[in-house]
Design a protein around this nucleic acid. Sequence first.
DNA 1: ATCATGCTTGAAAGCGCTTTCAGAAAGCGC
DNA 2: GCGCTTTCTGAAAGCGCTTTCAAGCATGAT
Lengths: 360, 360
Amino acid sequence: MNRTHTRVTLDDVARRAGVSLATASRVINQSAGVSEDKVERVWTAINALNYVPHTAAQVLAANETHTLGLLLPAVSGGFFVSMLAGIQQGLSESGYDLLIYSSQPAAPAQRNDDPRRRLRRPLDQHNTDGLLVFADSLEDDELRRIYGNGFPMVLLHRSPPAGAEIPTVTFENKSGARQVVDHLVDVHGCQRIAYLAGPEGHEDSYWRQRGYRESLQAHGIPFDPLLVAAGEFDREAAARAVAEMLARETAFDAIFAGDDESAMGALDALAHAGKRVPQEVAVAGFDDVDVSRHLRPPLTTVRAPIEKAGLQAVRQLVQLIRGGQAEPLTLLPTTLVIRRSCGCNGAGHELAGDLERRAL
Amino acid sequence: MNRTHTRVTLDDVARRAGVSLATASRVINQSAGVSEDKVERVWTAINALNYVPHTAAQVLAANETHTLGLLLPAVSGGFFVSMLAGIQQGLSESGYDLLIYSSQPAAPAQRNDDPRRRLRRPLDQHNTDGLLVFADSLEDDELRRIYGNGFPMVLLHRSPPAGAEIPTVTFENKSGARQVVDHLVDVHGCQRIAYLAGPEGHEDSYWRQRGYRESLQAHGIPFDPLLVAAGEFDREAAARAVAEMLARETAFDAIFAGDDESAMGALDALAHAGKRVPQEVAVAGFDDVDVSRHLRPPLTTVRAPIEKAGLQAVRQLVQLIRGGQAEPLTLLPTTLVIRRSCGCNGAGHELAGDLERRAL
DNA sequence: ATCATGCTTGAAAGCGCTTTCAGAAAGCGC
DNA sequence: GCGCTTTCTGAAAGCGCTTTCAAGCATGAT
């Protein structure tokens, strides 16, 4: 249990290999020509000693962390799994590690409660080579400050604050939303469609709502603010919101949920209230999360390439880090996925959906 | 965009505050008495300069990373979301950061293809204060080596290799499995129950299978190897496995899936084959993942406190890091959750389930 | 042979921080 | 007021690594 047991350093490796520290370092980093016999000797020593480089020392000396930071509000729902899977893929492509900063409301008692005596979180510059910022997990000010330092950063599902030209990757939210709502109206004749909005300030939700209103307008359906409720992209919040609408007897014949998570909540609330889906109320979601086709009834939704978004974000960020240019805006296409919750008989589509899903 | 723009160091802070580097460091770490006026001056300087400590330097000097490593095979499914949520909670309690190592099969072309010339991944000692190892994401040898160094480690859902007494946290898999299978037999009279096993070597699956066989034996039902298929804890693999059983006309009246993910696959395959659940085949899962109650039909399963497992694992690890003792084995209780896929009319239970879920 | 040319190599200077060490200042009893 | 302990404080020594710099040494050209 003696942790302080002599740790193996590059120095040890060099000595055992009979070369200098510098040469050993060069072998590891393949950073300069080293004669083949020395290369051999160094690797032999490394294996014999079980040498593992000390990352912090490498970072300090070389000023590169080989780590990307991911800022999240909190981990939850199927969305994150997919996003993380995509991000992981990007990481393994490029050889970076992932440091997750969850901006979750921290522990009960902060060590130091005086805000004037708190250190800024060491996100940038010193501790990662670049940052992936999800939605509103970082305030505009911080974003600007970090951008101002010329630090590589890519935004996921949010646009940059004014003045900061930070690359963004997100979905074609508006047109996707437009499509589902069009479908609800055109095919199923819905007229009173409720919208379950996401969290305040969440841009995906904003654009989806825009698409929703655009569709209403195109069909000459008046917009009724009473039909917009706070789904919060959260199952329980959405369930509460729908229950409330039901309670106050706001009439509606369809619910367009801002995401699949809130669609599940809606399905729940409707079931509890004894409303049949889709006979009495049609339901549609957004994202086409992993489980949506397994829901009761299978959810009509908009497929958003979540994994791809994660992957693209990493790629863009890596490009930026390596000194290249990144796409200012990556807009990934969304596609309508018809299943049964809207009233269609979605059988058959599901398989096709599966095949599509495979092709990242 | 000049990245090399003079970075703010502690030195700058110290100079501006009119104190020595050492004093400034002491203020930040509250590591020794410093007169109140200097403390004040240092913080003022820090805020004025927007100082952010350089983590690598701190790590190098203090030999503490304030980071926990999490080793995963790959991110997927509802299980991980819950586990990550629990881990995050533990992290924010204790102030550690999280570095995720996904042992995902790496990128196409490895830089260096000679295994003798590859560095060990810098997991331990130098780069994290402790390691959370999930299931079989690390080989026994590595585990032993790291343990041998006295490095803090906690295992999730796997037991330590012989000789290494590494704390483990996992579920009461066997008794949970025993309970569902008992239910299937006792209440629904099932006699030919298939088991969808998890990945080879996954201990959760091993114990669940043990529970399954124990129940069969207790009921005098002969064990039929033909009824055990490779569900792999994966939706698609499970669907294939079930389709195969169907194809080769192995008779069964129930499926006990090793986890909810494979239960979904089973549900899928069954639906495709036109088999009605639960009328023709009863289905039960394990885990009670977030979405299980939303499935078609709602899934009878065993609730496993996944979040709690993540949280506990972090707590144990932190205890270990701080020099304390950890529980050698944390076995979290599982409970049967009756819904409809087994043939019960599970209405009403769901709400209770929800309430339970809240109480972590 | 002689000199420029290109490779390989080691010594040494940091990277930004923590911490030991010892001196300075301050408080105390007498 | 004089030693003594108790706080504070700053100088300096690293932590383990990368990288510059200049030297060493072949090589081919002259």
